[in-house]
Design a protein around this nucleic acid. Structure first.
Lengths: 221, 221
DNA sequence: GTCATATTCAAGGACTCCATTGAATATTTG
DNA sequence: CAAATATTCAATGGAGTCCTTGAATATGAC
């Protein structure tokens, strides 16, 4: 049969993309990059690491081919190299959710108690959008909204929500969404809205899942 | 905002399944297990490692929840814990194929030159099966055939093929398949059949892809 | 109970990974 | 050209990974 060395080299190479994702910080990076390209410094803030360390992780992802770079003046923007990478990370998450022991406990330790929050699935939101009786709020940072958002959604970054409460039709049902199920922006938004007497719910997952399900999206401001 | 430690712990946990797959030998193990459950010794032979080392890799996969075990007398059989794991490994392979540098070179170094081999896609084979004008050979070990095979396929382990040539209708078009595109059994079979003057081709991928595409399968002898 | 077989455990050395630190490089601004 | 900013590089210590080796454990056969 074929020689063992060649087989091992092949499977070592096939495992390369897993190695690139086999680190919590790099997983966080991929997760953020699913919302669109980012500069190194920005990513470092996002994952609470030094710029030097973040840069090294990014280069590791680059060597594995999972991300690509673009220079703009003095800044370098990293982005996922293809939608396949989103798919891989999403699959990885699903497998972890199904099989990694104690994950649920860690998730609630991070996102807190969600039992008081009303939620809505993608399908439910799609129905309401079709009916037109819902206000959809994108509570992510403006740059992420600009890079792509649910069609018809309004950009209201979490920090601006309180000030802009009066702009939101007080009779309407409000649905907030953000980066995904492990993102707490939408939770905060729903709590604030509910406390203000509004009828609010969060989308169960986030924009990447909406987009990858090929539901209607828009770009720009 | 939420504390960094909890977020890091969560993403470390999400990266656990990636860590489990982040090794060539463990990748080989998952790849073999996609054909069905196996004993430790059997798996060790398959990946050319000592039993002790194989056992440790298997336990790592077990801790990550990707595989499960079943005891039968003195033997312990390992199996994938869910079809999700197959999906993950298949996705990882696709990403590596698309993004890992030099993978193609390593693949041909292992499987050899396939330019002389006639191939057939899943869709083409499905058509021919519908028309009924094709003989399909499963050239994997008998245990893998028994665990599941393409409906209508005949089990002809590679080692038995030469002896059983006379049993194969000499006028028919023959399609051989095995574990997948990185498996060389079907290549060998097609070369042998072609050399014997038969009209032979290999299925581009293998049984797991056929099954996960929900095409007709059978189990048993 | 003893033996054979299959698997796991435990310890060690070589290697790689990770976060930190401080310096080096590249680009824009003035 | 000098200064400021953004990113990368290089070196370090500590932790984790991987394979090897030899011993320990568990089950079934006799």
């Amino acid at each position: 049969m074929a020689d063992h060395a060649a087989k091992q080299a092949l499977f070592d190479a096939l495992a390369e993309s897993a190695k690139a994702l086999a680190n919590g910080r790099r997983a966080e990076l991929i997760d953020v990059l699913m919302q669109g390209e980012r500069s190194v410094e920005d990513l470092a803030l996002e994952i609470d690491q030094t710029v030097a360390n973040t840069s090294q992780h990014l280069q590791r992802l680059l060597r594995a081919g999972l991300v690509r770079t673009r220079r703009d003046g003095t800044r370098i923007f990293y982005d996922l190299s293809s939608p396949l990478v989103s798919t891989l990370w999403r699959t990885m998450r699903r497998v972890a959710e199904a099989h990694v022991e104690g994950l649920e406990r860690l998730a609630t330790a991070y996102v807190g108690d969600r039992s008081g929050l009303d939620t809505m699935t993608r399908d439910q939101l799609r129905e309401r959008l079709r009916a037109g009786d819902v206000v959809v709020l994108d509570v992510r940072p403006p740059a992420e909204y600009a890079a792509g958002h649910i069609r018809g959604a309004v950009s209201v970054p979490l920090g601006d929500l309180r000030a802009r409460l009066r702009d939101i039709d007080s009779g309407a049902r409000v649905v907030a969404y953000c980066r995904g199920s492990y993102c707490v922006y939408a939770d905060e938004a729903v709590r604030l809205l509910t406390a203000a007497g509004r009828d609010a719910a969060r989308l169960e997952d986030g924009f990447p899942e909406w987009a990858s399900a090929r539901l209607p999206v828009e770009r720009g401001v």
